[in-house]
Each structure stands twice: as C-alpha cells, then as structure tokens.
Design a protein around this nucleic acid. Structure first.
Lengths: 186, 186
DNA sequence: ATTACTATACCAACTAGACGGTTTAGTAAT
DNA sequence: ATTACTAAACCGTCTAGTTGGTATAGTAAT
C-alpha cells in the first residue's frame, strides 16, 4: 500500500487519495464520486469535503501526489545508478515506469482528470516539458529518448486499463530491455 | 474530418460518433452526455437514442469503429510496405500511430470507455492480444516490438491529453525513428 | 482547577440540478 | 409501410456542494 510518507501515520488525506486511485482503477473515472469515496473510506461526504473543498481540488491533489511520487522515485533511482553514464536518463524512465508500483494501479490521477476536467492537466504539461528537456539533455539520441519515454507511458496505460493480460509479469523484462537499449545506443 | 467511408455520404451514425470523439477530447469523457451530444450534432435526444439504444451501446460503437479504422489503415500500410521484410511489423505500428490522424483527436473511445464503464474494454483485450501475437511472430526481437508498440500508444495518449505541446509536428520524425529502429535491429 | 475559546476533524440531512432513459405524438421522405 | 427522425414532457437516480451541528484536543487566561 501507499500513503506511508511519514512512516506509520498515514493521514486520512492520503487514505482518501489512495481510495480514489483504486476506485478509478476498478470502477472507472466516471464513478469516482464523493459518495463512492465515502463508502470506500468510511468517511462521510462532509468529511471528504473537509479535506478537499471540491472535486477539482481532489483531482488536483491526485495529480500533485502523482508528480511528487514520481520525483521521489527518480531520486531513489539516481542513487541506484550512481556512476552510470546514463544515470539521469535511466532514472527518469524507471521512475515513470515504477511509480505507484506498490499501489493498486497506475496513473489513476491522469485518467480521472482527463475524464472530469481536462483543464486540470495544464500544469502537467509543464512537468512533461521539463522531463523532455532533461531527456534531451542527458541523451545523445534525443529521439530514442522520446521513443523510450513514450514506451514507458504506453505500457503504464495498458496496465492501468488491463488491456494486456500479462503486463505485470513482464515488467522487469520490459525494464531490462529499456536499459539495454540505452546502454547499446547511448 | 472522418466519417467518409462511403465517400461523400457520411451517415448520421458516423456524424454522431465523430462528435462524441470530439466531445471527449475537448470536454472530458465525463461530459460525454446525450444532451451535449445532441447540442453538438443538432440531433435530438430521441434521434441519438434511435441510433444508439443506450450509452453503453454508443461507447461500444466508438470502440468498434476505432478498431475497424485501425485495421483499415493497417491494410493501407501493408501495400505501402510491399516487399519490405518488416512489412507487417511496420504496418501495425504506423496504423496505431496514425489512425484517426485526420480526425480531431485520438483514442477518445478508449478513454470514454475507461471512464464510463471499464467492462466495455474486455473485447479490446482480445484485439490487443492478437496484435501482440502478430508482433511477436513478425519480429525477430519480440521485446523490441513490445517497446515500440507501447511507444506508439504512449505518444497517442500524450497527444490526446495535449500533454506535450509539439507532439503533432514531430509525428513524422517520430515515425521515421521507429522505422529506422526496426530496420537496424530486426 | 475551572472556564472560555479555538482548531481540527468530522457527520447527517438537505438542495438543486444533471443525467440516462422512456414515452407519446407527430413529421417527412422513400 | 418503413425508415429516420423531431419535440417535449417526464421519471427515478445520482451528484456536487451547502448547512448546521458534534466530538475531541489543546491553549490560555483566571
């Protein structure tokens, strides 16, 4: 499970966000409602609205936490790939592939926002743009970087929508292939 | 615009599906309603329900047309790559990258179904599985095939959600890179 | 130690509007 | 007569958001 940042004391705010992600994954973004969320968490609608003043605020928080988790994971990989000439490149890719890995599902925030209010995705564009710049900066073959970046996100989408049956099992093999392609070409 | 299969005489059924795609792209899947669809097409709610007996039927039709369009485009590319040792591989990838290219947006059907009723995606899993098998069959490096397949769909997702600003312009360069990678490695 | 107050974290009941879908009655072309 | 609709009323349900209230914990003056 997620929501363990302060180790042991997951605030209800995070509990709600976790439940929201799971709801989107299992029922679809359109059924992410305060009622359903209340049932899933045992918190009343009033309580939910205490934490997130509107549905847009909830979606915003989902996106924010998604980005934060991604950044955290990238830093973890940065130390794991210490010394590797493609440290940054690899860290960005694996972070995107594996964020929320320990959680139920992937990219629920993205899909929920896209479904309910695409305007909320605008701040994400900046984040993506920045990632693209990093990839171009740290890769000798920027187009390859783009291909691999999109590959990671395509795989995540298909996993989230359960469009391919055995995606989960192949995840490690998939990651290894990405790393091998970087080492071979970069 | 789309919906021109019988060249010149787009049935209202296709007009409705086009409008539905555009609505999902611009307003989000949650705002794909019969009322909004009626306003967009100028067809009354009764008229819409004459064509699609329920919302689920509408979503099903969106997915079906998406697959059909993809298959058509694949056949077009098959003749374009006649003689190429990677004919099938390339055709599958470019078809997925370019279906709906002349339309407003991509993969609206997928997102709409995912948002409203993920159960409707079940038949898509079969289609994906089949595509995977073809890719594995026609590629000497199945893992590369997977990477490139996911790259195509990742790029489509980001385009649809307008998550990267200049995706459209780079589409041809992106496609060329994919083809080059196939030729180099396969 | 008591009283008064504040902040946090909720809950239960309600409201107004939107939504999917139905129904009815009718039009117009083939 | 069939196909392809329009127009408009209507229904039950769901939904976001509001209101007003409660419980608990802590602060701080008296």
């Amino acid at each position: 499970m997620c929501a363990k940042k302060c180790a042991g004391r997951p605030s209800n705010r995070d509990v709600i966000l976790d439940a929201a992600e799971q709801l989107v994954a299992s029922e679809g973004a359109a059924r992410l409602t305060f009622d359903a969320l209340g049932q899933a968490t045992g918190i009343s609608k009033g309580g939910l609205l205490y934490h997130f003043a509107s549905k847009d605020k909830l979606l915003e928080a989902m996106l924010e936490r998604m980005v934060a988790r991604n950044n955290d994971l990238k830093e973890t990989f940065m130390s794991e790939f210490e010394g590797d000439p493609n440290q940054e490149f690899k860290s960005i890719l694996l972070a995107s592939l594996n964020s929320d890995a320990e959680c139920a599902q992937l990219s629920s925030g993205l899909l929920a926002a896209a479904a309910n209010n695409p305007d909320l995705l605008a701040p994400m564009t900046a984040h993506v743009q920045q990632t693209f710049q990093s990839l171009e900066q740290f890769s000798r073959d920027p187009m390859l970087a783009k291909v691999l970046f999109f590959a990671v996100h395509g795989a995540r989408l298909f996993e989230q929508l359960q469009l391919c049956e055995h995606c989960q099992g192949d995840r490690k093999a998939f990651a290894d292939k990405l790393l091998a392609m970087i080492d071979a070409k970069n």
